[in-house]
Amino acid sequence: MVEYIRIAAFLGAGLSVGIGAITTGIGSGLIAGEGAKALIVQPKANESIFRTMLIGQAAAQTAGIFALVISMLLLYGISEAPEGGWFKTAAYLSAGLAMGLGSIGSSYGAGYAGGQACKSVARMPKQSNMILGNMLIGQALAQTSAIFALLVAFLLLYSVPEQPEGLEIGNIIVKSLALIGAGLAIGLGTLGPGTGVGYVAGKASDMIGRFPNEKLKILRTMFLGAAVSQSTAIYSLVVAFLLIFA
């Protein structure tokens, strides 16, 4: 049994950082590409474009860092001889899946937002500070779904009870597959909302660069639109909670 739990933990660690790194790379690349294009358009503003690009890339990699944290916890945070039976096996595998899949959408969305911000800085270098602030707020909103995935991953790691002695095989299968289902629900469910919120943040950054006078109205619409787009991620969170605790 000990071997199975450790195999599941290592598998989860690999899946987490492996899947999570896919779009972290794509997002950072999007920002770098848009930044290079922006430099050609507006070579005079190279300093502010470079700064926006670097900060945007750092913020876009947050979800990747979450995946790395979960992976480290799965690799080093588990004792040599873990206990807990099949429940823990399923929970460790599922935690890796949840965080890995959950960081795809957010990283891509944050990357899109950063790219649009670079484009916008090139068009209006005087407003670079405002665009940078808006980009950071938008990227933080896009990371909310990754935070939900991280929450479920932590709950799977630390609040799943150990398997009681003498449980029938039917009950073991039900609970284990329910835990894996919870990971899949939040992992796949945050994919769409993350991308969508990133699109909202990108459009808002773009428009703030063009019409800086309408800043407050654009910000408010961005908050509202991003919040409503996240409701499906919240339904996934509810289903994941039900599957873990009920």
Partner: peptide, 22 residues
């Protein structure tokens, strides 16, 4: 009702758990 309340709850609970663990 579900989405408006779970949005607040999930964000605050997630923040609290992440602060504790990290």
């Amino acid at each position: 009702v579900v989405s408006i309340s779970f949005r607040l709850f999930g964000n605050i609970l997630g923040g609290a758990i992440i602060i504790l663990v990290v």
